[in-house]
Design a protein around this nucleic acid. Structure first.
Lengths: 149, 149
DNA sequence: TTAGGTGCAAATTCTTTGCACCCTG
DNA sequence: CAGGGTGCAAAGAATTTGCACCTAA
């Protein structure tokens, strides 16, 4: 799809621009890592990125991949999925509920909503597989973190 | 709130019953850990549970807490938050989107939905803090995992 | 030229496991 | 009293960091 390729080009240029503007060097490693994320539909972890990028840059190290991924994330060029950098957390509440998570301190609160519970998923999703559970994740800044600064 | 205490009692009894039915012994450690999760609103991690439970059972070890949490989870008495046991995954897609995640193999696919994007959060959520981002997480079993067995 | 980047190896952090003793059923 | 459960210590897995050399600007 030409459209996709074009979009990827734009994103790569954006990446270079943002790096330069932030005083961060544009290196082959960084560009390849970003390119790999653009290419992948898999939401890969650091090791998967490393495996893929190594085909083009055989000497790249896993720690460079980690450093670069967090750098790109800090620059707002990519995102992490789920509750990155958090330990596993447990919950005795089995009722259907949704989560508000503070991105600064990790505070998490449950909330309920009949409206959200009733939402229907696009047909597209059915094609991926059998749905077992659906919930809404809200990320934001909690009251006490907002008060701090 | 008497209602809450009553509910907690029910859950504790349920916990004992499920353990016995599954041939799993009811020990003070297990009951205290479950009690602590019922009590907490924090979705604590293993270490937080350990700290709290230690006040009542000073010799309990962290590894017992881990083992018990996964046991309770296997018995369906508690749940984990987020993408437990998964490594951090990265995503170059900055457009607003939602996730379908296969609970067996971790396969993740993005999907889009104007209906979901337009949903409004209950007022309750505003009280927790400033909302920055909202998305839907769908868990299920993907086509190829469903085919396997 | 030079400040920042990379690769290597070692350190950390979180979580799991092997083993000998203990306690529930 | 038998087999699973616990605590301890040690192992593992994922991620991060210190350092000396390298390279983009």
């Amino acid at each position: 799809m030409a459209r996709e390729r074009e979009r990827a080009e734009e994103r790569l240029e954006e990446c270079e621009r943002v790096c330069r503007e932030s005083g961060v060097k544009v290196t082959p490693q960084r560009m390849e890592i970003f390119r790999e994320l653009l290419r992948s539909e898999e939401h890969p972890d650091a090791e998967a990125v490393h495996r893929a990028v190594r085909e083009r840059l055989p000497t790249i190290s896993l720690d460079t991949v980690y450093r670069t991924l967090w750098l790109l994330s800090d620059l707002g060029l990519i995102r992490t999925m789920g509750h990155a950098r958090e330990r596993t957390r447990f919950d005795a509440n089995l009722d259907r509920h949704h989560h508000f998570v503070c991105v600064r301190c990790g505070l998490t609160r449950d909330f309920h909503s009949d409206a959200l519970d009733g939402l229907s998923l696009p047909r597209e999703v059915r094609a991926f597989g059998r749905v077992e559970e659906t919930h809404v994740e809200v990320r934001g800044v909690c009251g006490s973190c907002a008060a701090e600064k």
